[in-house]
């Protein structure tokens, strides 16, 4: 059993690198996912993931599968779409989900078109689903930097982020931090998606944010604990997914997301806070 878990990583460097990569992604993506979920922006994360594609594609068009070019392209595209959608929703009657849907559909179509202009289907698959088993030093450094920035920024923004979810009117009455906090948060979402994109591709990157977060909601009512649980679930999914892909010879990115999906399904059934089994058999009512 130990052999089953241990040997793939002991024997193969690419497995060790993949494990370090997914751990970094889980560390940043876990808390971001929790905030996305609590702010009712789960689908926003998904939309933003698509929005990154044309930027990364433009980077690819100019420089091929190059880390800096695709990262910068993805960041620029993500930030532009995030800010544009944020501003549209703040200053017009169109809600954020609607404006994001408009932006991301355009982005996805544009991105796939741009990649096809130059590349093969293999490249397109690479962009859409990532290459977690081929992370080089620079990519790992990028992932580590992103999770460091994310965790530090969330620590600073924690109060206004929570307040803006719970009681935005109150925050507006005591502080002007609301709008900048929201924009910085969207920036962090983009940053993490770009990081996740290198490992898992644009379509699955958001999975390492939302699935652990959604699963953690079933285990606790405390937001701090929720973030810890979410990070832990992300890391365990990464490990389990890599092992699954190694032993069953499955593609690694989807295997990781499937593992996270499995933990989500188990939490949905068994979770102590509103899991289905507890709802079905709650036990007899209490005295008070």
């Amino acid at each position: 059993m130990l052999e089953f878990v241990y040997s793939p990583f002991a024997e193969f460097e690419f497995m060790r690198r993949a494990l370090v990569g997914v751990i970094a992604i889980a560390l940043g993506g876990g808390p971001i996912g929790v905030f996305l979920m609590l702010r009712r922006m789960s689908l926003t994360g998904d939309a933003m993931a698509h929005a990154i594609l044309p930027g990364a594609a433009v980077g690819y068009l100019f420089a091929g599968l190059s880390l800096p070019a695709m990262t910068i392209g993805g960041l620029v595209a993500g930030v532009v779409v995030a800010i544009a959608a944020g501003l549209v929703s703040r200053f017009t009657t169109l809600k954020e989900d609607a404006s994001l849907a408009a932006f991301y559909l355009l982005s996805l179509a544009l991105g796939v078109t741009i990649v096809s202009l130059r590349g093969s289907n293999v490249d397109l698959l690479h962009v859409l689903f990532g290459t977690v088993l081929a992370l080089d030093d620079n990519t790992l450094l990028l992932l580590a930097a992103i999770s460091t920035i994310t965790v530090s920024a969330l620590a600073v923004l924690y109060r206004p982020l929570v307040l803006e979810c719970v009681d935005p009117t109150f925050l507006r009455s005591v502080s002007r931090a609301g709008t900048p906090t929201h924009l910085i948060f969207l920036g962090l979402v983009v940053l993490n998606l770009v990081g996740g994109f290198h490992a898992l591709g644009t379509l699955l990157a958001v999975g390492m944010m939302m699935l652990p977060a959604a699963a953690s909601r079933f285990w606790t009512n405390d937001i701090t604990l929720m973030m810890v649980v979410s990070v832990a679930i992300g890391m365990v999914s990464g490990l389990a997914g890599l092992l699954l892909s190694f032993h069953a010879e499955l593609p690694a990115g989807p295997a990781i997301i499937l593992a996270a999906g499995g933990i989500y399904a188990a939490s949905l059934l068994l979770g102590r806070e509103g899991g289905l089994l507890w709802l079905a058999w709650p036990g007899k009512h209490l005295e008070a």
């Binding site: 609590l38 979810c165 009455s173 009512n221």
Partner: peptide, 18 residues
Amino acid sequence: APIAYLPQAADIDRSFPL
């Protein structure tokens, strides 16, 4: 100190884990 303001039916997200 800023004004203390209690809006009508404060738009508080009651489902938030707080």
